[in-house]
Nucleic acid binder design. Structure first.
Lengths: 259, 259
DNA sequence: CGGGTGCGGTTCATTATTTGAACCATCGGT
DNA sequence: ACCGATGGTTCAAATAATGAACCGCACCCG
């Protein structure tokens, strides 16, 4: 494990519910030597990737990450484009929508939009890290990922978030097959009970799935007619997002027909 | 220079006009050894900070930077807050507005908003890197920075972007003194000819200036009355942004009175 | 064709950096 | 005054980074 990888892995301990981390906590979390963490964080700080609080000297993410994100947005504007699409999709469906990106072994939510239509809604936080196997977004991505990538995900221990989470790799594989039939994934309560979630994959220029667009709604608000509306809207929005970021669906992706 | 710092410095060669860089180019830009660059970029890639294009194998910034930015936004939402404020400020003034963050030796623009009122306007790109001494934003930050930080900036060679750029440290220092009188900076053509730019500093929780909010307009469209409108709107917007991100102006910052 | 040039990628002995146990200073609670 | 935290520092030993040279492959051009 190279020094750079070690330093960058320290950044992965920041999370929405843990935005600030002290030196000792960080050494425990990372199980590295305290002096090592101290020096690495010092370098990250000098580069602006983290900054230190005044009082407790806890570390938090620094302004440089905003700059890099703005830079990436300037060339491949996923965020700004998806924000508009999320807004429209939320208005259209009346439910909470979000985009996520697929990473090595988890899925990260990037941005979300709420609808004012209903008082009860699924609430979210940006920058949440969720699993592939338990979310509709994750499954949508997996369904169009390399087989070896699917293997690597499914060979890890699969956490059972709820009583309805699929944890059997074979069952998940057949679910992925179903998803490929329709080009659309849905899960009912597999990540959070009473949440019915639909998702479509988002493709990059190389025809590979890079992320997903999803609609999450309370399970009680999901009669068949509403599901059809959501599915159609999601398909359209997904195609639009893929297109707007310069991506292309693979040849076998179901274009318009929807069973 | 630590290995981590070296790796992170590689990321700083990405810019709006250079979103993709090949291995050889990066080697030349960084004046490091090719093998070193290759290994470091490999580590950055494994961590998701950069990704490699299919055809030419050029590197570009990866999805992980979006995740980190979303994470920082979740705790200190500068971007999402400033977007709304920029929108309002653009509508109010009829001109191009933008926010920037101050870094070690340069200023980085983060986000901007245009006004549809005029056909001719100042155009911008996000994630641009500009100098402290030649921009109203940079001067607004410097005016409220530590004296030793001002020294370190002004002791570097100061590039003359246009014929009107201030490059004499003494002149700049007296300009900073003027800015402190009013709490507002303005430059006329010092970064780009024919652009009249106003800026106010944005403060963090520790009373230090962390960035600036600015209005940039064609110089021809700047009669005294319009300047007053812009100054008043900018002051209000700056105070609002500082407040919304949990910041506080220093005690000596001119609160409401405007000469 | 054929050779020159630039590209991404790889090797391996040399070298410089990283590592980690132990240590120090300081704070807050008991 | 003590105890157990915290952030920060030290230095010999161990490890990882380095860089000149090399490889194979496109592409270009005479």
């Amino acid at each position: 494990m190279g020094t750079v990888t070690k330093a960058l892995s320290l950044l992965s301990f920041f999370a929405p519910d843990r935005p600030e981390i002290g030196l000792s906590d960080l050494t425990r979390l990372s199980s590295m030597n305290k002096a090592t963490v101290y020096r690495l964080m010092g370098e990250l700080q000098a580069a602006g990737f983290v900054e230190q609080g005044e009082g407790d000297r806890a570390y938090r993410l620094g302004p440089q990450v905003l700059h890099l994100a703005a830079l990436r947005e300037a060339s491949t504007p996923i965020l700004s484009v998806s924000r508009r699409i999320l807004r429209e999709l939320s208005d259209e469906t009346g439910e909470t929508t979000h985009v996520s990106l697929g990473h090595d072994s988890w899925v990260q939510t990037l941005s979300h939009a709420y609808s004012p239509r209903h008082a009860t809604k699924v609430t979210m936080e940006d920058a949440q890290t969720v699993t592939y196997h338990a979310t509709s977004s994750g499954l949508a991505i997996l369904a169009y990922a390399d087989p070896q990538f699917v293997d690597s995900i499914l060979s890890q221990p699969l956490k059972s978030h709820t009583s309805k989470t699929l944890v059997d790799p074979d069952l998940i594989r057949s679910k992925l097959e179903q998803i490929r039939q329709t080009g659309l994934a849905d899960t009912l309560g597999s990540f959070e009970l009473e949440v019915h979630s639909h998702a479509v994959p988002i493709f990059g220029a190389d025809h590979r799935a890079i992320g997903a667009l999803a609609v999450a709604a309370p399970a009680a608000r999901m009669p068949a007619a509403q599901q059809d509306i959501i599915r159609a809207a999601l398909r359209r929005a997904g195609a639009a997002l893929t297109h707007r970021i310069g991506g292309r669906p693979p040849a076998d992706y179901p274009q318009c027909a929807a069973p």
